[in-house]
Structures are given as structure tokens and as C-alpha cells.
């Protein structure tokens, strides 16, 4: 298995996900399969291949710096689970 349960735990913490022991075992196996699958690419010799930064062969797509209309606030807040008419409400963020 190419990924350890410790690595999965660390990633789940960064993603703010809480995994039960069962889930951790499942995820470790599944993530390992994914990584192993992608790892097949390393069988290829890429010595002469230029690293690719983007899948599209396209650069320099820009727009002009011009203000356009934003959403009405009521629209922006419409899908929020909690809002007070001005702001989104989330469980208190403490400390920083």
C-alpha cells in the first residue's frame, strides 16, 4: 500500500474531516489505489519532456479592468444556511 494511515489522517485533518477507524481503513485503501494508478506514469521515461504547466496550449487570457455590476446582497446570501440580511453567519471562529 503506497499511502499510510498516518498520511491519510494528516490530510483529513487539513481538510477538516473526521474519520472513524473504519473510514480511515477504507480511505487508506482507496487513496492508495488512486495513487498507485497515477503512479503508473512514472514507468515512462520523461527525461526529454518539458514540464507542462497547463493542459491547454493557451496563454495570456486577460480582461480589461472595468467594474461590472455585482449580485444584489439578498441574492448573494440566498443560498447561505444562515445569514442576518447583511452577512453570512458561521459558527464562531475563535482566536484568529
Amino acid at each position: 500500500m503506497s499511502i499510510s494511515p498516518e498520511q491519510v489522517l494528516k490530510v483529513s485533518r487539513l481538510a477538516r474531516l473526521e474519520l472513524s477507524d473504519d473510514e480511515l481503513a477504507t480511505m487508506t485503501a482507496q487513496l492508495s489505489q488512486v495513487v498507485d494508478y497515477v503512479d503508473q506514469l512514472s514507468e515512462l521515461n520523461t527525461d526529454d519532456v518539458v514540464p507542462m504547466a497547463h493542459a491547454l496550449d493557451l496563454t495570456n487570457v486577460f480582461v480589461v479592468d472595468q467594474v461590472a455590476e455585482s449580485l444584489e446582497r439578498s441574492q448573494a446570501l440566498a443560498n447561505a444556511p444562515h445569514a442576518d440580511g447583511e452577512c453570512y453567519l458561521v459558527p464562531a471562529v475563535m482566536g484568529d
Binding site: 444562515h82 447583511e86 452577512c87 453570512y88 453567519l89 458561521v90 459558527p91 464562531a92 471562529v93
Partner: peptide, 15 residues
């Protein structure tokens, strides 16, 4: 926007 008055209140988010 932390609400200083109510410590248990929700945090308000301005995007």
C-alpha cells in the same frame, strides 16, 4: 466580523 459583545454568537462573514 467578530461580534465582541456576544462571545457565543456566530461569526459574521463579509466577502
Amino acid at each position: 466580523l467578530h461580534d465582541e459583545a456576544g462571545a457565543v454568537a456566530d461569526s459574521r462573514i463579509d466577502l
